[in-house]
């Protein structure tokens, strides 16, 4: 009894904001915390990469064609003698911005559609979700290739393709959390007060979906980067000469036997980045979900 009273007093003294609570439980997730730190460094590298890279992305060194890793070229050179380490640094910005912007567009549209679908229900729901089902019926890569076939190759079109194929995923997830929040008593309470639909959505439904949104946003960036790299590998995305990671993989595939480092290092960059985003997403989910937390 006395213990409970002192605990209550303690709680009253230090006010814990929701963010502090999240931070406390996120820090406990060692692996995804490390992934977060890695991604933070990656973002810094992507921003300053062009300035710290020892060579330019199109700088040819004809004395060192397809040479292995050395102190001169940390990750070796490709068939034109371009420094692979420098190209990876330059490419980080491309991969991250393609991943981020495509998922952002997809999440934005998907969230709007998902909330409208879940909140209004009935025929609006059926109409939106059937279109999403059609998009989901295609395997992601195939859909992206199809969209590129319509829009034509290029990095911007890759962003659009990946965005379009992210929309149904977000629409589904956000619709289900909208349905859950819509049936809560506090939403009923605010409706009984006389709140408009817009107010209910903006003040109650959307804030409730944010934690789910953050988790899936993070996880989708990984797969978006993978798909974008895949499209570039197939020659549908970035111009083959740009230091995009997928395009670099594609360049190196002819020399896989005698110069595996040409494909290994860009592949490693893709692998680590995607893995880090997924691990971060996992940790965020555990930290943001009050049912798993503590």
């Amino acid at each position: 009894m006395a213990e409970a009273a002192t605990r209550k007093e303690e709680e009253q003294e230090k006010k814990v904001t929701p963010f502090q609570q999240f931070w406390k439980s996120f820090k406990k997730q060692k692996v995804s915390f490390a992934a977060g730190v890695f991604l933070l460094l990656l973002f810094i590298v992507a921003a300053i990469g062009p300035f710290i890279a020892p060579y330019g992305p199109q700088e040819y060194d004809y004395d060192n064609l397809l040479s292995g890793p050395s102190w001169q070229h940390l990750a070796g050179t490709d068939d034109f003698g371009r420094d692979i380490f420098s190209r990876i640094l330059h490419g980080a910005w491309i991969s991250l911005s393609v991943g981020l912007s495509s998922v952002f567009i997809g999440a934005l549209l998907g969230t709007i559609l998902g909330i409208i679908s879940g909140y209004f229900g009935k025929w609006v729901d059926s109409a939106i979700m059937r279109v999403m089902d059609v998009l989901l019926a295609f395997p992601g890569m195939l859909l992206a290739i199809g969209i590129i076939a319509i829009l034509g190759p290029g990095l911007f079109n890759v962003v659009m393709a990946v965005a379009i194929f992210s929309v149904p995923v977000f629409a589904r997830i956000i619709r289900s959390s909208t349905l859950a929040i819509k049936s809560t008593l506090y939403v009923e309470a605010t409706q009984s007060i006389g709140s408009s639909h817009f107010r209910v959505i903006m003040k109650h439904i959307f804030p409730g979906t944010v934690s789910t949104l953050i988790v899936y946003f993070t996880m989708r960036i990984g797969s978006a980067i993978l798909i974008a790299a895949g499209l570039s590998f197939l020659g549908l995305g970035a111009d083959p000469s740009t230091p995009e990671w997928g395009a670099m993989l594609s360049n190196g595939r002819d020399y896989l036997n005698n110069a595996p480092h040409v494909t290994f290092f860009p592949g490693l960059a893709i692998f680590l980045t995607v893995l880090a985003f997924n691990l971060l997403g996992d940790g965020l989910r555990d930290a943001l979900d009050p049912k798993i937390r503590d």
Partner: peptide, 28 residues
């Protein structure tokens, strides 16, 4: 206006007490 049975479910866990009490004032 209504007072609800379950005081645990009828208040939005993401809103401060100020926002909860102020909501009807803002709506009207």
């Amino acid at each position: 206006q209504m007072i609800f049975q379950d005081p645990y479910a009828s208040l939005n866990p993401r809103m401060t007490v100020r926002d909860i009490i102020a909501e009807p004032l803002i709506v009207h």
